[in-house]
Design a protein around this nucleic acid. Sequence first.
DNA 1: GTTAATGCAAATTGTTTGCACTTTC
DNA 2: GAAAGTGCAAACAATTTGCATTAAC
Lengths: 143, 143
Amino acid sequence: MSGDFADRIRSSGKRLTAQRELILRAVETLGHATPDEILAEVRTHASAVNASTIYRNLEVLEELGLVRHTHLSDRAPTYHSVGGHEHFHLVCRGCHKVTSVDPAVMGPVVERLRAEQGFVPDLGHLAMFGHCVDCEAGQNRQQ
Amino acid sequence: MSGDFADRIRSSGKRLTAQRELILRAVETLGHATPDEILAEVRTHASAVNASTIYRNLEVLEELGLVRHTHLSDRAPTYHSVGGHEHFHLVCRGCHKVTSVDPAVMGPVVERLRAEQGFVPDLGHLAMFGHCVDCEAGQNRQQ
DNA sequence: GTTAATGCAAATTGTTTGCACTTTC
DNA sequence: GAAAGTGCAAACAATTTGCATTAAC
């Protein structure tokens, strides 16, 4: 089960530590979480883990392709595990609901950007802000 | 010339101050600029302007629809004036080049998101990260 | 003259860094 | 036991806040 993970880590010359494993598990458990939330979750399993360890490990885990981050608010970034399927995000400014969308939806745009701008987007990092139907109507409007 | 601006401000119950005008001008001059860069630019015209005044006014100017902000890096946001044409941004992770793109390119996607997700994106806030042709090749790869 | 806006200093939030100590390999 | 990783405290960057003073209307 965590064999893949262990191999993935070691084959990169990095080491397998308890904290590293806990942090990856926390990201998997939480879905989309900020470093702060990840710290809190990790601390429910092991007490003394430091914030800087969270930051350093999120960077490592992202380098290894095990987690990704995106910006779902103007505040801290959120990390999620790379559980096979890539996705991008819709964020409603009214109710703050976050929806994951299949990147295939962006197919035609990706083609045009490549052709016209010579640009290949990283959809896994993408967050589109806007309003969902409920909030579009007006009741929940915030920003 | 700044009559529009003056009316726009006053009709909202806000007041027209020298700082407010300087900040809007700075945003117009700079294109895409962080609060810090805006502060520096303002200070070339008037010495004592405070950082908190920059933040407070950017918020006001954005409420009034005179400027917009987007996130072109993992650091500070950048503000640009709403000079008629809405656009979204492509940011190359290799060379950090920023390209403005006509929102019409996203037409088909906007349609699908509305139909399938009931979601209306705010394209003016959108920044897509990825790699431009030159950096895609490999030489400039960073992240 | 009332109320909004500014300046200033201090507080907050999120993140990074240097360094001694600990752990993994 | 060498090198990577951790904890801790301090530094840092970006932003926000409280409050007295100033300026716009």
